[in-house]
């Protein structure tokens, strides 16, 4: 990508309002959530009295070492797992809590999976159209027209009739995000989606994700262990302690949006990095030591 093109991109997005305040839906309130696996047996505590408030439209980065229980939290929001106690609300509505330990999965909260979960047996276009087709509220033609338009907006024209296995992994991720956005979700839940990508592809994907965010304004709950990724994308970093998982430090990233890759070399970026690095490293060491004991 040329520097010139990058400039155009930035000029374009400044026309849209990128402040969080513009978004009115998608506030997540995680209140004193505990998750214990196998409470009658091994009783492994994955999440320990965790409370996080995410305002609507925030890009909230959950940072922590691998296996610390971040994904458990995401699964609870998505409705894949129950919680042991506590509650999670989305825009004031209860997702899961004392009377209802497991949330219903729904198209207001869509997960973008670690290894990607585009259906390999459906074309990219069929994948993007999947949510509305299942809902069955709109006609097929209408849905496919919208799907084509959204794919075109995300730079995916020409790949509609390819199967996911035929396009690059970077493009696959983009298709998956467009598939989620087709349903007009309140929240996108990312489970380390760029983990398997090389760092060059990653940087392209980060800017593309921000672009999509600036256009669509959803709340983003993004799990990662990559600090650079977290600071570049996020409004806020919630650094988690290693298992059981619990917020340890919150770092505000006051670098204004829209951002592009030049912020990576800025003074402020390095300062925030310095602030966060110590805490993350300490937790990583704890996780490593715990892992060694288990092994």
């Amino acid at each position: 990508m040329s520097a010139e093109m990058n400039q155009d991109t930035i000029a374009d997005v400044t026309k849209v309002d990128v402040t969080k305040a513009a978004v009115t839906k998608g506030a997540i309130k995680i209140d004193d959530v505990v998750k214990i696996y196998d409470p009658n047996g091994a009783a492994v505590m994955a999440v320990d009295h965790c409370s996080i408030d995410i305002p609507a439209g925030e890009i909230c980065m959950i940072v922590g070492p691998s296996g610390c229980g971040k994904t458990t939290l995401l699964n609870a929001i998505a409705g894949f797992h129950d919680i042991t106690s506590g509650s999670i609300h989305l825009d004031g509505e209860l997702l899961c809590g004392p009377e209802k330990p497991q949330a219903e999965p729904g198209s207001d909260r869509i997960v973008v999976f670690q290894n990607g979960a585009l259906f390999p047996w459906k074309t990219n276009l069929e994948n993007v159209a999947f949510g509305p087709m299942m809902a069955g509220k709109l006609g097929k033609k209408e849905i496919y027209d919208k799907a084509r338009a959204m794919m075109a907006d995300a730079g995916l024209s020409g790949t509609e009739n390819n199967y996911p296995g035929e396009v690059s992994s970077g493009l696959r991720r983009r298709v998956e995000i467009v598939r989620a956005l087709m349903n007009d979700p309140k929240v996108l839940l990312f489970d380390e989606p760029y983990r398997a990508l090389d760092s060059l592809t990653k940087s392209v994907m980060h800017e593309a994700l921000l672009e999509i965010y600036y256009r669509n304004k959803v709340t983003i709950f993004f799990i990662t262990h990559d600090l650079e990724e977290a600071i570049f994308l996020g409004h806020r970093l919630i650094i988690m302690s290693s298992r059981p998982c619990k917020p340890k430090k919150i770092v505000e990233v006051d670098i204004p949006h829209p951002r592009d890759y030049s912020v990576l070399t800025s003074q402020r970026f390095r300062e925030i990095m310095g602030e966060a690095k110590g805490v993350v490293h300490e937790e990583a060491q704890k996780a490593f030591a715990a892992g060694e004991r288990e092994g």
Binding site: A78, G79, F80, P105, G106, S107, R109, I110, V111, F113, A117, F119, F130, G131, M134, A135, R179, A180, N183
Partner: peptide
Amino acid sequence: RAASCLGAS
């Protein structure tokens, strides 16, 4: 999981 997220029964 992805399918149920996307609203599939």
